[in-house]
Every structure is written in structure tokens, then in C-alpha cells.
């Protein structure tokens, strides 16, 4: 059973093929990593799945329904949550309000003009913050948080509409090794507990090899490899275009608990 089915996806910018004929599935409850050199088409792929870009060709099916041509917010309503490479939260709001905002949107209450937002969905917001370990910071301004904590708040926001699929664009960018590990461990736990599927891009190979169920590799817009950590690590082509000699990461890191 796959939650997301990508078929023959293609996109060109000014004659340059950014993504060419890419097909893959994300299984139910699967933690799938998408890796590849910068400019390989990962972001383009991502942006087509979340609706920010329209593909030239190909189909994307989420929960057995084509989502090509839908707007990002429509795709979100179907149950696709996402986090950004540079964590995107609402800086002028408190941590709790950030999550409440997502809940209010989830319940279709954006165009309400009377009762204050602060009084809406408080308990649920706290529950979500508790899950990511941020309940203690609920009343603080989001702009005051350390970057790692902002990432956690972003995760709570992404979970507010009870998504079936989470799209995470370089979730650990700009974080220290242990923070990376903690965040991905947290995501993995939520994935297992709530049976969410995750598609994520990442350059931190320690994290990818330790946690991903499966890894797919893009290079120059094409899918060049698909397999588990071991198969990808030993793939000559992947080593050549992406991994290199493996001197700048710990290739055999284990998940820490």
C-alpha cells in the first residue's frame, strides 16, 4: 500500500531538465530519504509534490487521488504536512499561537472575527507541543527560541492537521550532530506511533543511514538508485556523484537512543 505514488515526473526550466521521468512510491508508514547532489532536482521534485510547482509531465497520487494542479494549501487539506529547509514559523506569535494558528486553519476558522485565537484549541495545541517536547515554552515568543527548538515547533505545526504524509526538506540543516539525531529520532517515533509516512531530503548522511527505511538517489534530474542504507552506501555510482570517499561523515553511525 503506498501513500504517495510518483509516476514519470518531469520538469524543465528554460530547456534544462531539472527532473526527468522520476517515479517512486512512499509506502504506508515508510521513512523514505531522498538524497542527491545540490541541483540534482530534489527541491524541484519536492515543490511539485507539495504543489508549489506544476510538473510538465507525469502524475502524483496521494491516497489514490491525483494531486497535480492543486494548490499547496489544498494539498495540505488532504493531509500532507511539511517542514522547510529554513524553519518557517510565525516569529511575531508565541509558540502556542503558532500551533493554534494551524489548528484554527485545520478547523476552517480563519475567517472568524470575534473570539480571540488565544482561546481556541488550547488543549490540543499543548498536546502537540508536548509530543515534540516544547510544551514548557508555549507562552514564549517564537522569535526567542533557539534554532533547534524552532524546528520542533515547526514539526508540531506540521502535525496539527493529522497528516498521513510529512514532507521534510532538509529537516536537520543547520543543527549540531546530537540535535540532528534527537530531531530525527523524534520524527521516527512519531512516524511509528501515528503511522505517518515521511519523505525527506537530507545531506547529513549520519542521519540518513541511521534512520531511513529506504533511500532513493537523484542525480541530474534522474533517479539513479533505490535501496536500503547498505545498498546505497556500496553503490559505485552514488559514491561517485554524491557520497565521495566518505571522509566527512561517519558512514556507519548508529541510531542513538
Amino acid at each position: 500500500m503506498s501513500v504517495l505514488r510518483v509516476r514519470n515526473l518531469s520538469k524543465a526550466f528554460g530547456g534544462v531538465h531539472a527532473v526527468e521521468n522520476v517515479s517512486f512510491d512512499v509506502g504506508d508508514g515508510e521513512f523514505l530519504a531522498l538524497i542527491g547532489p545540490n541541483g540534482a532536482g530534489k527541491s524541484t521534485c519536492f515543490n511539485m509534490i507539495n504543489g508549489q510547482l506544476a510538473p510538465d509531465r507525469g502524475d502524483i497520487q496521494f491516497a489514490d487521488r491525483s494531486i497535480v494542479g492543486l494548490k499547496p494549501r489544498e494539498i495540505w487539506r488532504l493531509g500532507v504536512g511539511r517542514t522547510f529547509q529554513v524553519a518557517a514559523t510565525f516569529g511575531s506569535m508565541t509558540v502556542a499561537e503558532n500551533v493554534q494558528m494551524a489548528l484554527v486553519s485545520h478547523h476552517g476558522e480563519i475567517f472568524r472575527f470575534a473570539r480571540a485565537l488565544a482561546a481556541r484549541h488550547r488543549e490540543r495545541a499543548f498536546e502537540l507541543l508536548e509530543q515534540v517536547g516544547m510544551a514548557g515554552s508555549a507562552p514564549r515568543a517564537c522569535k526567542e527560541l533557539a534554532y533547534g527548538d524552532v524546528k520542533r515547533v515547526e514539526l508540531a505545526i506540521a502535525l496539527a492537521n493529522e497528516p498521513r504524509l510529512l514532507l521534510m526538506d532538509e529537516p536537520t540543516a543547520g543543527m549540531a550532530p546530537r540535535e540532528r539525531n534527537d530531531l530525527i529520532a523524534l520524527v521516527k517515533r512519531l512516524v511509528v506511533e501515528r503511522r505517518i509516512s515521511v519523505l525527506f531530503t537530507e545531506h547529513s548522511m549520519d542521519v540518513v543511514f541511521a534512520y531511513a527505511d529506504r533511500i532513493i538517489v537523484l542525480a541530474r534530474g534522474m533517479l539513479i538508485a533505490d535501496g536500503n542504507a547498505e545498498a546505497i552506501r556500496d553503490n559505485m555510482q552514488v559514491q561517485q556523484v554524491y557520497l565521495g570517499a566518505g571522509r566527512t561523515f561517519r558512514p556507519h553511525a548508529q541510531a542513538q537512543s
Partner: peptide, 11 residues
């Protein structure tokens, strides 16, 4: 604050 995030939560 963040049009990207706002659209991504359905606003």
C-alpha cells in the same frame, strides 16, 4: 511573517 508557512497550513 511567513507566507510560505501560512500557505503550507492551509491559509
Amino acid at each position: 511573517d511567513s507566507p510560505l508557512r501560512a500557505e503550507a497550513i492551509g491559509i
